[in-house]
Design a binder for these strands. Structure first.
Lengths: 229, 229
DNA sequence: GCTCATGTCGATACACTGTATCGACAGATG
DNA sequence: CATCTGTCGATACAGTGTATCGACATGAGC
């Protein structure tokens, strides 16, 4: 047997751990959205067989939970927020920014209870900013109301972004009846208020839209924390 | 050839139309969630081959769009809402009710622009209630802010419902650290505010939760429609 | 009536998915 | 050395969305 004929030694299995798995999955999702995340593909990124992933997760859904928690690390504040309003505002904006970096998060936001360490830390940081300000029920209502708004607003923004990308048109263009379907529907005369809105509405920057709605909801919370005498 | 040997005449293809397809898909989704909706299964419900569906839809995603629009028929108000607040409130509650009847709607809410006839009619009805009340931008902000809240709140409610169902525990029980994972996490002492909330929080009826948040957001809108002098 | 063109349909196929299963192999233990 | 245990990759299975193609029915024209 010459040295050229000698078979390679059995390769050691690639190192595998939860962090690597999640990072590979996030990478795939960032490239192609959630449909691009298959266990085979994740494993291939790690030079492993797909069944190895089952040592770390029981189902693909758990992998998605881990991915959501990983992104929550990007949502954690760098320092303690000053007050409750800053805490909620900051969290909302960081969530939006994280979602713009990882669009697939919009597909998962609010879909499952987020119980990972990073998500819990985000929740803790938010709650801590309300310390002593109101009864527990009001605090809970406040946090959940803002959080609900954030979830819904981000989903809509990403949905519009995708529609825009799919049609090659800008948001205002396709909203302004450039899409043949909506043009036809509005031409029926059955939706006069909608037609007026589409025709007269001005394009508002997505961030400004998000921020305005957020401030409105924060105002509502403020009114409940310090109810008028 | 005797009559017993005579083959049956070729069966006429089952009648197929968009409504039937959507109804079958909604039925399947109501029974098993979105994962239960496969084109094969939908077609089987209609005694057709799956490829026939492609005469009506281009992708499975379009089928989901049609399903969402079908449910919007249940969200349309039966009569003209009295005022803007009633319009938004009614729409929110009907959306929640529709989602409780069709849980899968929570998975699709806000995920794609809703442009079907029913969804447009819902939008039209809502906008009409603001007629003459404010400039178009403010109206749009108002409708979208409430809608964002509704989307997020419903998603959270359904997520909790599913978690409850998966663990066999009630919402407050599993939030109250009955789940081993959350128990362990809270026992670390890293989340004191969260622990306090879980420990001291009282169970609030899901509908009351939804309604309280909704009224807060509606209050915020009211403040913008009639700004203080 | 016959022929041809067109449209519809179902069967088959393909590439892919999540996940179950099993044999091979390495390492640890006695 | 023999046995046991754990890990791993290959294989398999059932299922998915969607492409493709042959069979068949129908309509139009002659």
């Amino acid at each position: 047997m010459t040295v050229w004929d000698r078979p390679d030694p059995p390769a050691r299995p690639a190192p595998l751990d939860r962090e690597r798995i999640v990072a590979a999955a996030v990478e795939l999702a960032d490239e192609g959205g959630l449909p691009a995340v298959s266990l085979r593909k994740v494993a291939a990124r790690l030079d492993a067989g797909p069944m190895r992933l089952y040592g770390y997760i029981a189902t693909k859904e758990e992998l998605f939970d881990l991915m959501v928690d990983a992104v929550h690390a990007e949502i954690l504040p760098e320092r303690s927020p000053g007050d409750w309003r800053e805490a909620l505002r900051g969290r909302a904006h960081r969530t939006r920014q994280a979602t713009l970096r990882h669009e697939w998060l919009a597909d998962l936001l609010g879909g499952r209870p987020a119980l990972g360490p990073n998500a819990l830390a985000v929740g803790e940081s938010t709650l801590a900013a309300f310390d002593g300000l109101a009864d527990i029920g009001t605090v809970q209502r406040a946090v959940e109301t803002v959080s609900a708004y954030v979830t819904g607003a981000i989903r809509r923004e990403i949905a519009n972004l995708r529609a825009e990308r799919a049609t090659g048109l800008s948001t205002s263009d396709w909203q302004r009846a450039s899409g043949p379907h909506l043009t036809r529907m509005l031409a029926t005369g059955r939706y006069p208020a909608l037609a007026r809105l589409v025709h007269e509405g001005t394009e508002v920057d997505a961030e400004a839209t998000f921020t305005t709605g957020l401030e409105w909801v924060l105002d509502a919370v403020a009114a409940k924390l310090a109810p008028p005498a």
